[in-house]
Write a protein that binds this DNA or RNA. Structure first.
Ligand code: FES
Ligand code: FES
Lengths: 158, 158
DNA sequence: AGAAACCGTACCAAGGTGGTACTGTTTGCG
DNA sequence: CGCAAACAGTACCACCTTGGTACGGTTTCT
């Protein structure tokens, strides 16, 4: 349906949170609490980010995660690539394990090349956004609780 | 997972097939046979395209579908919008039937504005690709410029 | 030793997607 | 007229992905 998954969105939130406190070791619990998101979700996505080398992890008591890279070098594209894995806008370019093309009509397809171009354009757009730019912007102190939005007319004052 | 659905891809195939024979009434069976795709899939997507006003339909024996618009006016964005319905890259901007925001952490989200900009930029890229270019099998000239990501309106044609 | 915190994996419910089937309706043709 | 071709509409289903949870294991600090 042409949207990034919610997990990826969570990953961006966590990365930005860490990048705004460079070098600081922060527990996943703190991030989850700040955004009022389920802790297992945050930990899951942080594991992925660590596996992709975006953030560092420190185990044991007092441990957590930290971002100590250059926020001007890390791009949105890299983060998304880490979180979602390699992706293509259309599966025409993808191949299965046997190297066999997934799309059976490649040779007759009049839109494949165009799709490939769009694919590259989108990836290029993501590559142009740096983590530093993402981290800039208002970091509000108040957060709307999940339940206040589910029920109508309840979110009066936050 | 950041990909367009296969149905949408089928719709592009069908539209391009029709656009390559302007004004000609072509049965769905012919298109399905040409691409070696299941006929019910093609008919389903052609119904959607007809409902969206992209193609015309002619019932009865000898009937079929035809494209008789201006291929330089119809854009890839319009076709995708017709096939997939309104979409957003992230659900942060979407609202449910009651008008409530789907995302519970909007106010605290440091990436929402950036995502919104990217959303617009991608839609703009799709709008810049015409059906005529699609039918020619050309690579799109659309390039997403960094400036579009934060500017309030989508940039002009490249 | 015990607690804090990350690691790994497995599991599940819900929703979306791709695909099929079937019944109706319209139209051309002999 | 009567049949066949072709679109219209809807309903249905199997499968996969996604969002979310659970649980046990490992590391480290105090
Ligand atoms: S539909 Fe597969 S190559 Fe285009
Ligand atoms: S996560 Fe919803 S506004 Fe960004």
């Amino acid at each position: 349906m042409l949207k990034i998954s919610r997990l990826t969105d969570y990953g961006l939130l966590a990365t930005v949170y860490l990048a705004r406190k460079p070098g600081e070791v922060i527990a996943a619990r703190e991030i989850a609490a700040f955004y009022h998101l389920p802790l297992p979700m945050i930990t899951k996505v942080l594991k992925t980010l660590h596996a992709g080398g975006i953030v560092h992890s420190y185990r044991g008591s007092g441990g957590g995660y930290s971002f100590d890279g250059d926020p001007d070098v890390v791009t949105l594209g890299q983060i998304i690539e880490t979180l979602e894995g390699p992706w293509d806008l259309v599966e025409c370019e993808s191949v299965d394990d046997a190297g066999h093309a997934l799309c059976s009509i490649r040779v007759a397809c009049p839109s494949r090349r165009m799709m490939f171009g769009i694919n590259r354009a989108i990836k290029g757009a993501f590559e142009q956004v740096t983590l530093a730019e993402l981290a800039r912007g208002a970091m509000p102190s108040a957060v709307i609780d999940k339940h206040e939005l589910s029920s109508p007319r309840v979110a009066e004052r936050v």
